[in-house]
Design a protein around this nucleic acid. Structure first.
Lengths: 333, 333
DNA sequence: GCAAGCGTGGCGACGATTCGCGATGTTGCA
DNA sequence: TGCAACATCGCGAATCGTCGCCACGCTTGC
């Protein structure tokens, strides 16, 4: 494969000149430039980004660690972040942790070795100690959507307490007094925050907090299915279910159909996340939308600030407001 | 950041020895090895993969070009391929083309520049001429699921004609005589093959091919919704609909609910792809499953063969059989 | 006493960028 | 017209961090 030296040789100039033509780093006379360009084309020259990265200490690559791209929510995130990155000339390395801390740690090692310029992370297990070494090596990390580590590196989060509060309040406003709850993967802050919001709304409405109305889930559809069955089998079943994400709400919806319950008359359902899919369910699913495109842009901006050393020393946390999206699955006509 | 030279200095050995400890490329006495390891730890040494790649001419990275990770089918593919790759020490660069040829071409350039070791590609627009230069530069390309370019580079495909044939035959076997069809993005071979299979099954059953029963789609849910409405508004509407992928079938399912049609009694529905989601719909959706995990492994193996120069000169096409998965949306009880 | 084998080190690529230097050509002013 | 000052543009060479070829010294066994 042709190198910059080959191009220089053919064009009868030095490699320095070719490099300047390539990067526009200094004025090059038109004659010379034309000769260089012609040589590059004649040789089918492709600059070697690896060599460049070694020299300038910058890979134009960032790592994206997330639990599972297959879940529509994370796929949505991946798409949005990739878009922002590629528009700015960055590539992303996709790292699917499968909810496993040990895989997250392997990726962390790997990405450092590869000298990515930064890291966006939706992590389930990483803590303070794990990322401290990266930060010391000036590898910026931005937490996305889930952060157990505020104050150490930058983060862009939504107010999960608020979102869950709004969802629950919406159900209360529709007249529901027994509201079931399908939780998510419990070690996460996201889950515990949403639970707080739910409890807060109940308290505000003067409704009792009844543990039997809670059931566990893991953010995937089958667990929503199991959860809904469990709740509906109660002696005194709920008239509405708040699932901690949209996929579990989907599972719950299937149970409603299975048992011939009319939604929302006999059972109201609301999810969380606002994945595009919710709009195309039958009935369309109420949800709390996370503004992922905006959050992606913010996350990348935070990263770029650090990469270019124009960020304050202390860490920054940007908090974005979730938006209640009431649809047919909760709205009585 | 510490380099191999720093480690060598501290351990009192040469960089060659450190490199050999690092890569297990020759025997190093235990004493020396221990000293080297200790030095690496003391310095928090992280080998520089960029420099290594430059030297050994191998990046352990592959590019993955696909139309849209947000669609569950492609997300599934991305997850499976990433899994196979990372288990073998490879990273993947995610390239979301957004169904745009110009973006595909940009990614192609970019990935070459970055010297990825290979490329897995679900492409909508790339042709022979576009990849020929890559192949000449010994950058292997494997087509995944959609290939307009058999015979030039390797490919792993399913038999779309067969899959669509099976789906249609299944509907016929359930007694349907007017079977509507929601097509996919038409420039793709995938779409035209599925249409062939549909026609073949009709012919075999002695049913007429009626163009009014076809409507266009783009593989996304809203187009399935529009398509189903269009078909059901016909003077003589179909009793079954075959959507060319699961997401459009989902859209069609919403229309069924909207119009209070019982599925499958009044309207049967079948999709294509077999994304995990179909199992959790209500009713669960019949589909034709593509064995994506197996296909991912095969694709990566094809790539590795080429990377390590142990592949035949001529290109190889592996064809995998799709599997009919009949579920509640077509099966009368 | 010598060959074989083991463990180790020196040094030059890999392909780009960039700094300092120098050879031109251009301008301004006496 | 002559010459200094300056802008323009190209070149040579060092450098980034790693690996792998070649050479070399020491031990060991016959």
């Amino acid at each position: 494969m042709a190198t910059i030296r080959d191009v220089a040789l053919l064009a009868g100039v030095s490699t320095a000149t070719v490099s300047h033509v390539l990067n526009n780093t200094r004025t090059v006379s038109e004659v010379t430039r034309d000769r260089v360009v012609a040589a590059m084309e004649a040789l089918g020259y492709q600059p070697n980004a690896v060599a460049r990265s070694l020299r300038v200490n910058e890979t134009l690559t960032i790592g994206l660690i997330l639990p599972d791209v297959e879940l529509p929510f994370f796929a949505w995130v991946a798409k949005c972040i990739e878009k922002v990155a590629s528009d700015l000339g960055y590539n992303i390395i996709l790292c699917n942790s499968g909810w496993s801390l040990s895989r997250e740690l392997r990726y962390l090692e790997n990405l450092q070795t590869r000298r990515v310029d930064g890291l966006i992370c939706i992590s389930v297990g990483l803590t303070n100690e794990h990322v401290a070494p990266l930060l010391r090596r000036h590898m910026p990390v931005v937490w996305f959507e889930e952060a157990r580590i505020e104050g150490v590196s930058d983060a862009v989060l939504i107010d999960n307490v608020r979102g869950a509060y709004e969802a629950t309040r919406h159900l209360v406003a529709q007249g529901h007094r027994r509201i079931g709850c399908i939780l998510g993967y419990t070690p996460t802050v996201v889950t515990s925050d949403r639970l707080l919001g739910y409890q807060h709304a109940l308290r505000e409405a003067g409704l009792p907090f009844d543990r039997t109305l809670l059931c566990s889930g893991d953010y995937e559809a089958p667990s929503g299915l199991r959860g809904a069955r469990q709740l509906l089998d109660l002696a005194e079943p709920p008239t509405a279910i708040f699932a901690f994400n949209d996929m579990m709400a989907l599972g719950a919806l299937q149970v409603a159909h299975e048992r011939h319950l009319r939604v929302p008359d006999q059972l109201a359902l609301i999810g969380f996340d606002g994945i595009p899919l919710t709009e195309f369910m039958s009935p369309s699913l109420s949800t709390v939308r996370q503004p992922i495109p905006e959050m992606s842009r913010i996350a990348f901006d935070l990263l770029l600030d650090r990469i270019h050393d124009r960020a304050p020393n202390e860490s920054r946390t940007v908090r974005v407001e979730p938006v209640l999206v009431p649809r047919a699955s909760t709205l009585l006509v």
